[in-house]
Amino acid sequence: MIHLYELFHAMMKPMKNMNNTETMTSWILACRVEDIPENGGACVLLDGEQIAIYNFKKRGEWYATQNLCPHKQQMALSRGMIGSMGEDPKVACPFHKKTFSLKSGACLSGDDYEIKTYQVKVEGNEVFVAF
């Protein structure tokens, strides 16, 4: 059975290739709003990549990052707790509580690595990621 999103995704692929410049963003339908728990995250598979999407309801904001925690290379960030350090929204990896800014991707616990972040938009009940 082909999943609806995969079908949509397959349709989006050629478009992305046509816009083969980095400045152009193509919005890909990732999931529905209710797929992501409030004030938490979940993982989607987009073009073979694992992306963590966070519904930061407390702030009325959505974020997306790579799902891989660079510390021990674990696909885990979507299962981490989110919160804030000062004004900066962050996620804590469930493995060793390394924290990362959801805005900049910088590691807030002082390590050198960082994570990729993606833009997110919500239209109606659908969540799109700029990919």
Binding site: F56, K58, R59, M81, G83, S84, M85, A92, K97
Partner: peptide, 15 residues
């Protein structure tokens, strides 16, 4: 959090 705290919480206070 709404009643007794401020900010958006974190991995220390949530659990």
């Amino acid at each position: 959090l709404e009643d007794l705290g401020h900010g958006d919480g974190c991995e220390t206070c949530k659990p």
